[in-house]
């Protein structure tokens, strides 16, 4: 049983993801880890209109019937929690970041905030992008080194200590991607150090 404040926090983040345009009506998913339990949003739930019954508690590793109701990305979330120290995960479909992920192998922010927060964001690519074993492997591997990763043409996975942190990373990624995408048309602009590519 989650505390009321925890449920409220998940609902607010879900709502914000939708309002900010980082997901479509039934896309994206959110989870938290507490001990060996993962609380993840229900499969097909609307993150912008979450209810307490839309949160499903599953074991971090052991399969059980509750997985029936969990998000289709539950295996990716499990892999992240098993292979990293993340305590929260936000998966979203930020439009500009997704667009850039189709054009680039990594996203290097050109704006100040993006540069401070990320330095760079890796882009990973697999054939089966949703909930697959191969997606679980590459995403969880990237999140061993980075706080957020883009799955090419699909969306972002952010890890945080707290949910708010994972949401902040998702939101900041999209802002950074907006600038980076539009500036591609400009011939000359002031760049940050190439050192960020070594991050």
């Amino acid at each position: 049983m989650l505390e009321r404040a925890t449920v409220g926090m998940i609902k607010e983040v879900g709502r914000d993801l939708f309002v900010r345009g980082l997901i479509s009506s039934h896309a994206g998913n959110i989870s938290l880890r507490m001990g060996r339990t993962i609380y993840i949003t229900r499969r097909g739930s609307m993150l912008g209109r979450l209810k307490e019954s839309d949160l499903v508690g599953v074991d971090i590793e052991r399969a059980d019937s509750r997985v029936l109701m969990a998000s289709s990305e539950v295996e990716v979330h499990r892999a992240i929690y098993l292979r990293t120290s993340a305590l929260s995960v936000v998966h979203a479909h930020p439009p500009y970041a997704t667009l850039l992920s189709l054009l680039e192998d990594e996203i290097v922010p050109v704006d100040s905030e993006g540069s401070y927060i990320f330095k760079k964001i890796p882009v990973v690519s697999v054939e089966k992008t949703i909930g697959s074993q191969e997606a679980s492997v590459v995403i969880s591997e990237a999140l061993q080194e980075y706080r957020i990763v883009m799955m090419r043409g699909h969306g972002s996975f952010a890890r945080g200590e707290m949910l708010e942190e994972a949401y902040m990373l998702t939101s900041s990624l999209e802002a950074a991607a907006f600038y980076a995408y539009h500036i591609r048309e400009m011939k000359e602009y002031r760049r940050f150090s190439d050192k960020y590519k070594t991050w």
């Binding site: 880890r33 507490m34 305590l87």
Partner: peptide, 11 residues
């Protein structure tokens, strides 16, 4: 609150 505090602390 106590939800998740132990996990946060261990990390």
């Amino acid at each position: 609150g106590i939800d998740g505090k132990a996990s946060l602390l261990a990390l």
